[in-house]
Design a protein around this nucleic acid. Structure first.
Lengths: 207, 207
DNA sequence: TCTGTTTCTGACCATATGGTCAAGACTATG
DNA sequence: CATAGTCTTGACCATATGGTCAGAAACAGA
């Protein structure tokens, strides 16, 4: 087994190189998808030789696997922060903003996820029906409570969450399209998107 | 040059086989992306031999190219139908429904498009900044007119369109995730989505 | 049925790709 | 500064993949 996989970054070099490789791999995988990426591409991007990459990781799948693991944790975080509050509309809009910030600051992670889902989620199907479903159901129940208490307008909680995911992730996954369509006005796309989404979800939730 | 490319389906066999190949290719490309797909996969899916595929098409790129061409036309159609009307809210919601129907009835096309955009749209970048931008700008202007006339609430037209694209296409591109999260309730996902999106965009546009 | 054309395929080629390995280079520590 | 352990790489292998080609099989019209 490769060093890095077993001993989690024992030496300084191991920690550095491992991160270097993972960063390069994220760049490549998020752009070309798993099958479309080659170890050589990752090696070039990382400024290392191919055998050197394979000294730290057991293979292409192993690198991809580590990236997906990290991703899923990061992905659930913003939703985790959604809790009960006196101002549910604000609580939900805050979540929208957190997701939009992630699309802006971590577009590669978003695209890695999108690629995986598009291909039928072969490697993360269990997490989708497991931890993701559990967490989503939990938050959907919370939203339903708010509706029952008359604090927000009646909406299907699950589909509201889907709308939040899709509208925010769109600015990462479809960035090329967004920029192409906006042309020279694409500079402030995230500010305008924030304003627009804020308005939109407030309107939906308003009684 | 391959037969099918030059003479547009002259004989019966040419028309049939060409369609057969394109259908198989759509299935494969939409699932694995361009680089992740092989001619052998397409051949197997189509029930033909690899050389036979290459008898009808000049290569992998050529097949993909034809699919993208057809796709783009189909993709712009629903937006094209958005025209001036006494009831702009209804007009926009109708567009949302048309897009949602496309996500339901042509998920492979949606995923093919998503794959292409995700990878930076190397093959359709010109169309994005060309015909897509032109059409989108045109419809954005129309929406702005409606706003100026006070017929709908003020929204950023471009970002409204992005929201429509993302929320509807989500049900095709992220179907695995949607089904995983909804679990046994995923059967009626499109009906509930239609209801939800209808409500949502009505709320956004309401003055 | 004959014949020119279209359709199809097994065998083949060049290159790309994931992965291995032995040996050399480097590094930390006594 | 010696040396045990860590790190790196050129050369190599097996397989996958895009694509070619000569000739066989099927077909359509006379």
């Amino acid at each position: 087994m490769a060093r890095a996989a077993s001993t989690k970054g024992r030496t300084r070099i191991q920690r550095e190189k491992t991160e270097q490789i993972l960063d390069a791999a994220l760049e490549v995988f998020s752009t070309y998808g798993f099958r479309g990426s080659t170890i050589d591409q990752i090696a070039t991007e990382a400024g290392l030789s191919k055998p050197n990459i394979l000294y730290y990781f057991d293979g292409k799948e192993a690198i991809h696997g580590v990236l997906l693991d990290r991703l899923l944790h990061k992905w659930l975080e913003p939703l985790n922060q959604l809790t009960d509050s006196d101002d549910p509309t604000r609580e939900i809009c805050d979540y929208v903003m957190r997701k939009l910030e992630m699309a802006r600051d971590f577009p590669r992670e978003s695209r890695l996820f999108a690629n995986e889902i598009l291909q039928g989620a072969p490697r993360i199907h269990d997490q989708l029906t497991g931890s993701l479903k559990t967490l989503t159901d939990e938050k959907a129940t919370l939203i339903q409570h708010w509706i029952d208490k008359g604090k927000i307008a009646p909406v299907d909680p699950h589909h509201l969450i889907f709308s939040i995911w899709s509208t925010t992730q769109h600015y990462a996954d479809f960035d090329v399209q967004v920029q192409s369509v906006l042309g020279d006005k694409s500079e402030q796309r995230f500010e305008i998107a924030a304003d627009h989404l804020n308005k939109m979800f407030r309107a939906v939730l308003k009684k």
